Amino acid sequence: MSIELINCGGCKKRITEDEVTKDQVVSLLNRIWHKDHISCVYCKLTISDGRFFKSSVDPMRPSCYACHIQTTHPACVGCSLPVIERGLVAFDRLFHIDCFRCAICNRTIPQRKGFYERDLMLYDDVCYMMYIKDAPNPPMRSPMSNN
């Protein structure tokens, strides 16, 4: 039986029958790759942990787990990191639960407790009442939804 030789999806060099026999190649995204030549289309680092995803910029090139998360998950308004599991949406802005904090005391505002918002800044009830006296008191608001 003869094996048809094709080029590696990464280095573009011919894959030899010997490399196939020695399990030095892998099928990925409908192409054959040398295991050492699977690199992320975004960060260009070799993907050695086996976690790769089809990239959105080139469906024939993989992305690593970190770049996949970075490019496919929305960012938290508080820290700019992607929200992967659970988030909190307030005023059409997405936050990590731990990033939903008072602008004055920097304490996390509990989900079940109300908060105030003024000029896109969040305040817990105590800080708002103590430090934002000159503003008209808007009604107490609760987070709109959880993700």
Score class of each variant (00 low, 15 high):
residue 140 M to L: 15
residue 133 K to D: 03
residue 61 R to A: 11
residue 28 L to C: 09
residue 59 P to K: 12
residue 122 L to F: 15
residue 11 C to L: 04
residue 143 P to C: 09
residue 78 G to C: 00
residue 57 V to N: 10
residue 38 I to A: 07
residue 100 F to N: 01
residue 86 R to Y: 06
residue 81 L to F: 09
residue 59 P to A: 09
residue 38 I to W: 05
residue 15 I to D: 01
residue 122 L to V: 10
residue 52 F to N: 10
residue 79 C to K: 00
residue 120 L to M: 12
residue 29 L to T: 01
residue 87 G to H: 04
residue 62 P to Y: 04
residue 113 K to C: 11
residue 143 P to V: 15
residue 12 K to L: 13
residue 85 E to R: 09
residue 52 F to P: 04
residue 31 R to W: 06
residue 138 P to V: 02
residue 133 K to I: 07
residue 116 Y to S: 03
residue 116 Y to H: 15
residue 138 P to K: 02
residue 26 V to P: 01
residue 129 M to H: 15
residue 93 R to L: 10
residue 66 A to D: 14
residue 120 L to Q: 13
residue 43 C to T: 05
residue 12 K to C: 08
residue 57 V to W: 04
residue 26 V to M: 06
residue 8 C to I: 02
residue 64 C to R: 06
residue 99 C to M: 03
residue 140 M to V: 14
residue 61 R to P: 06
residue 76 C to N: 02
residue 109 I to E: 08
residue 88 L to E: 07
residue 85 E to D: 15
residue 90 A to K: 07
residue 66 A to T: 13
residue 44 K to F: 09
residue 136 P to S: 13
residue 20 V to I: 15
residue 3 I to D: 00
residue 92 D to V: 06
residue 35 K to N: 02
residue 48 S to A: 12
residue 25 V to Y: 01
residue 1 M to R: 08
residue 13 K to V: 07
residue 42 Y to V: 15
residue 70 Q to A: 12
residue 135 A to Y: 13
residue 136 P to G: 06
residue 100 F to H: 07
residue 105 C to Q: 04
residue 91 F to H: 12
residue 35 K to R: 11
residue 99 C to H: 04
residue 109 I to S: 04
residue 106 N to E: 14
residue 96 H to T: 05
residue 9 G to L: 08
residue 108 T to E: 07
residue 139 P to S: 11
residue 44 K to Q: 11
residue 86 R to A: 10
residue 53 F to T: 03
residue 9 G to I: 02
residue 75 A to I: 08
residue 133 K to N: 08
residue 37 H to T: 03
residue 49 D to E: 02
residue 13 K to P: 05
residue 4 E to C: 03
residue 53 F to I: 01
residue 83 V to H: 01
residue 112 R to D: 09
residue 7 N to H: 07
residue 20 V to D: 00
residue 97 I to L: 14
residue 14 R to L: 12
residue 69 I to D: 03
residue 110 P to M: 04
residue 142 S to G: 05
residue 134 D to G: 13
residue 144 M to G: 10
residue 32 I to V: 12
residue 145 S to E: 13
residue 120 L to K: 15
residue 81 L to P: 06
residue 7 N to C: 08
residue 83 V to T: 00
residue 36 D to C: 09
residue 137 N to I: 14
residue 40 C to D: 05
residue 66 A to H: 11
residue 78 G to M: 03
residue 9 G to W: 01
residue 99 C to G: 02
residue 46 T to C: 09
residue 29 L to W: 05
residue 6 I to V: 14
residue 53 F to E: 03
residue 106 N to D: 10
residue 125 D to Y: 04
residue 109 I to T: 02
residue 95 F to S: 03
residue 130 M to A: 12
residue 11 C to I: 04
residue 4 E to L: 12
residue 19 E to Y: 03
residue 105 C to R: 06
residue 44 K to M: 09
residue 131 Y to K: 13
